[in-house]
Amino acid sequence: MPEKSASNLVAEPLSPPKIRSPRRPAGTLYRGNEGMWSWVLHRITGVAIYFFLLVHILDTALVRVSPEAYNAVIDTYKTPIMGLGEIALVAAIGFHALNGLRIILIDFWAFGAKHQRVLFWIVIAIWLVLLAGFIPRQLMHVFGG
């Protein structure tokens, strides 16, 4: 293989240059980068929050049925698994909220559009701070005596 390549090197200037198209689009600003992944996460968290909202309206409506019915359902929200689910919910809402603010900054502010990548990492940083505050508190509430 190395020998052949070496001979090709000599012959190359004579053959017409070949332009090979990349297998996938390369060098785009958007694809595979912060812009795309923030969009993907915004959609996934949005759908997840939406379906939780539908269930949450129905479970809260039980206050109109009877105290016993409401308490029976809301007690399931206090189990360890649902306690972890609430962490996932707050994580999803936190990302959707912060990235939503990023979208608004991009839409209405030239600086925001120009620096959307930095804004994405600022969103992630604030999101991590938010979770660093919430997760220990929630674990104490759910698993602490």
Partner: peptide
């Protein structure tokens, strides 16, 4: 008490 305080 967080989520554990929620009831009717």
């Amino acid at each position: 008490e967080g989520v554990k305080a929620i009831d009717f």
